[in-house]
């Protein structure tokens, strides 16, 4: 390696290190400031809570034995809605792609539903499905499904026409074209729609838990607000932050692995 190359790498490395240090410094600074301000009564502990109070609340939730119940409830709902969203999204996209007539009929309605804030349907869901987990999953599904359908379907439509022509010249039928070409060539689109899907699902699940729930991270936040326990609200948000970050990282890992192969 030449000296210039070494110097370049060193510079890059130093730059990255600087970014990381600044990030950590920022977090520490904000947390410390928050803690000090609330401890010395400059901001109200009751309204703003504080890092130490949040940790204490989480600890007591853990000691009560409800912490993991809340986390797993949300996790369960998220996974179900996520998997259903992807599967149904894929199936519906295949149907839309295979039948031009159906696609043409439903396109305006898809746009219509897509532009509607799905939260508005929450109250109806509760009345129709009931005040239970099913409503929460339905809420999440409403939010993630349309996005999945549209992104996968668009991926299908972007298939290279030359390749379709090639398969047709070999006498391929519709199913062969789908199986051999359309789905494999949209692989990347499908994988990246997973990422979009997970954030949509989380919005839906938390929204659903706000509307109706007996447990879950969304429930913690909502319940905390109702009894004006801001420590609980902040703890719920903090847990949710970590929860969604981990899920996002997992999906990222899956994406990297799948695309590599």
């Amino acid at each position: 390696m030449s000296n210039e190359a070494k110097a370049f790498l060193k510079k890059e490395k130093r730059f990255n290190l600087l970014v990381h240090i600044t990030q950590i410094f920022m977090i520490v600074l904000i947390l410390a400031l928050w803690e000090i301000l609330s401890r010395y009564g400059i901001i109200s502990k009751f309204i703003f809570s504080s890092p130490s109070l949040i940790l204490e609340t989480i600890k007591s939730l853990f000691l009560e034995g409800t912490l993991f119940n809340h986390i797993f409830t949300t996790l369960f709902e998220t996974i179900i809605a996520f998997v259903l969203g992807i599967l149904l999204g894929l199936i519906i996209a295949v149907i839309l792609y295979s039948f031009k007539f159906i696609a043409r009929v439903f396109e305006p309605f898809l746009t219509l539903i897509n532009s509607l804030p799905k939260v508005a349907l929450g109250p109806i869901l509760i009345i129709w499905i009931g005040a239970n987990t099913k409503s929460i999953i339905a809420m999440a599904l409403l939010i993630n499904l349309i996005v999945s359908i549209i992104s996968i379907y668009t991926g299908f439509l972007n298939t290279d026409y030359n390749k379709i022509k090639l398969l047709k010249s070999f006498g391929a039928d519709k199913i062969q074209i789908l199986k051999k070409l359309i789905i494999p060539s949209s692989y990347q689109t499908i994988i990246s729609s997973l990422k979009l899907n997970i954030s949509m699902t989380l919005i839906g699940v938390i929204m659903g838990e706000f509307l109706v729930s007996k447990a879950g991270l969304g429930y913690l936040i909502m319940y905390g607000t109702q009894v004006f326990n801001l420590n609980l609200v902040m703890s719920g948000i903090f847990l949710l932050l970590i929860f969604s970050y981990i899920l996002y990282k997992i999906i990222n890992l899956i994406e990297k692995r799948l695309i590599k192969n």
Binding site: L167, G171, K180, P184
Partner: peptide, 21 residues
Amino acid sequence: DDALFDWLTIKDNALLGLEIK
């Protein structure tokens, strides 16, 4: 253009027509 499928090996690409038929 060659219209080769990126996700198939050269041999599988070459066999594509036979597979379809």
